[in-house]
């Protein structure tokens, strides 16, 4: 097959993919998204003969538009434009998870500082303010007090891009010093790891320690549901352990909640997997390329 690897930066993840694809004698067209001109009528020359485009754009904005163009050219792309559109935006992400009945942290959105402050006061302290677009734990704020809330809201309203005036406020989940990252292909887990840190942010990009994690049936089911909720694909599903089944807390039957339990806080669509590759014995890259091959067989 011929794979178009859409990129702007070759990280270790992309190097692993390139190596695996070439080892299997697949043709790879490296397509630097920064050098393309996307016509509304016909694909750029670099896309010629490509069986599937693998979107590995570092910039979310480029990913969202480039996948739309792939759709317009009838070139299969992973992940799909639909998935990119949902996963790129935390509001759409949360709405999709909630709509699918998946346990996800309580979240409210406001468009003015005053309304955002009302949300924060009703959630209580601590709570979390997140940018609607962004990754790697950047610009996340754990709000411990009213004065901190006022300061963060003022900064976002005054200094920020217009998207920072979409105030995304989320309940603080008191996780056990770690969260869980699951790499999945169309809802089927390839592997999972815990990311542990003494800091409230446990992103691998923030230096959290990683270790392999064995998923139980409940987590596996949630990963499948979360994947379906955003349109499927090669995804990084993030879960936090709550100690109590969130589904049971919604259950008004009066039965005691079961132990265990997760909440899904995010699904990532241009997922990095080098940390998972290092933390587990799983050949993550091989599994991803297996899946890509199966996608091309289906669309051929």
């Amino acid at each position: 097959m011929k794979v178009g690897l859409l990129y702007s930066r070759i990280r270790k993840d992309e190097k692993l993919l390139l190596e695996e694809l070439r080892d299997r004698d697949h043709e790879v067209a490296k397509i630097d998204v920064r050098k393309q001109r996307f016509s509304i009528r016909e694909p750029p020359e670099a896309f010629e003969g490509v069986d599937i485009v693998l979107d590995r754009c570092l910039a979310t904005s480029r990913s969202r538009y480039a996948t739309q163009f792939c759709d317009a050219y009838d070139i299969p792309v992973v992940n799909s434009a639909e998935t990119a559109e949902i996963c790129a935006d935390k509001v759409k992400n949360s709405l999709a998870l909630e709509r699918a009945g998946i346990p996800t942290p309580n979240t409210e959105v406001a468009f003015t500082k005053e309304s955002a402050m009302e949300i924060i006061e009703s959630f209580g302290y601590p709570c979390v303010i997140k940018p609607v677009i962004g990754s790697w734990g950047r610009l996340m704020a754990k709000i411990d007090s009213k004065s901190a809330a006022e300061a963060v809201l003022e900064h976002k309203a005054t200094l920020g891009h217009y998207e920072h005036k979409v105030f995304y406020v989320q309940e603080f989940v008191d996780k056990p010093g770690r969260d869980i990252r699951v790499l999945a292909v169309d809802g089927e887990p390839v592997g999972a790891m815990v990311r542990s840190s003494e800091h409230w942010l446990t992103n691998a990009a923030k230096g959290a320690e990683t270790d392999a994690f064995e998923l139980d049936d409940e987590a596996r089911a949630l990963v499948k549901e979360a994947s379906d909720a955003v349109g499927g694909g090669l995804l990084g599903v993030d879960l936090m352990e709550t100690g109590v089944s969130q589904r049971d807390t919604r259950n008004t039957s009066g039965d005691a909640p079961e132990a265990g339990g997760y909440t899904v806080h995010e699904v990532n669509h241009t997922v990095e997997f080098k940390a998972l590759n290092d933390a587990t014995d799983i050949d993550v890259t091989g599994e991803v390329v297996d899946w890509l091959e199966s996608k091309v067989e289906v669309t051929a």
């Binding site: 702007s8 930066r9 070759i10 570092l58 910039a59 979310t60 904005s61 940018p131 677009i133 962004g134 990754s135 790697w136 950047r138 610009l139 891009h161 990084g236 990532n268 669509h269 241009t270 997922v271 990095e272």
Partner: peptide, 22 residues
Amino acid sequence: EVIDVEPPELDKAPELEEDWGE
């Protein structure tokens, strides 16, 4: 940033943008 490999050529890499990530 590696902008060519034969022969190798480097340029300053772009600065981190707000929408970068996964």
